[in-house]
Design a protein around this nucleic acid. Structure first.
Lengths: 119, 119
DNA sequence: CACCCCATTCGATGAATGTCGAACATCGCT
DNA sequence: AGCGATGTTCGACATTCATCGAATGGGGTG
């Protein structure tokens, strides 16, 4: 069969200057994706299957794709896992204060605590 | 018939504490609505028909409803016009910095200028 | 009153979206 | 090689959504 160590399709990540604000807002305007982002906010790096969300694996994969292609997270393939991290610095550079303010607001006045899913 | 100022259904506006962050983000994640909000950001009060957007009146009405019911704007019936304004202070109270950061980011590094529609 | 203006409401419609199950791919381990 | 764990891709399906045209309503003015 074809060349074996082709990392599947290289994951698309928008360049910092290509990141669209409305795409970011749209990506964050979903409960499941917000839970993912809040979890990454509290913990820098996590594999896909380790988030406190209750959806099918295929659905989860879809949400990660939306977050990645909007520029909110970065994904890299670590072995058979996939590690996710927020693109905090790049977003801060491009849209100063936006991610901070949104995540602070999502955390609520109680401050950053354990992420609870609110479906 | 004392007062002739009975305007049919009273427009629904969520209380400050009822405003949902994801609803706000969803409301802002649309080009037409973002243009409306940016225009209101630059000018405090405006009638529905005076925004630099190119959609049918019925579509415009729909967008104003989304913005109002999400808590982003307040609408009040002034005669046969309808005046719109941002709920800046209330949003600042509930989600500190969110609206400011988003609108600053939407304005771009060039600073607040004339709102240009980007469809 | 008749007319015009502004905005809303009501379908309808096509596109986008969130969800799932099944099948596939890749890696690590036995 | 075989197997299990982890994610992705591929339809499929139902819902949401942005958009429009036509009809409606309320207010002011001639």
């Amino acid at each position: 069969m074809p060349r074996s160590h082709q990392r599947r399709a290289p994951l698309y990540h928008p360049e910092p200057e290509e990141i669209d604000l409305l795409d970011v807002l749209h990506a964050l305007a979903d409960p499941t994706r917000m839970t993912i982002v809040r979890t990454l906010w509290a913990e820098p790096e996590r594999a896909c299957g380790t988030f406190p969300v209750d959806v099918a694996p295929s659905t989860l994969s879809h949400h990660f794709k939306v977050l990645r292609e909007s520029g909110v997270i970065r994904q890299r393939g670590e072995a058979n896992r996939r590690l996710n991290e927020l693109r905090r610095e790049e977003l801060q550079q491009r849209f100063p204060g936006v991610l901070d303010a949104i995540l602070a607001a999502a955390a609520g006045p109680a401050g950053p605590g354990p992420v609870a899913q609110e479906d």
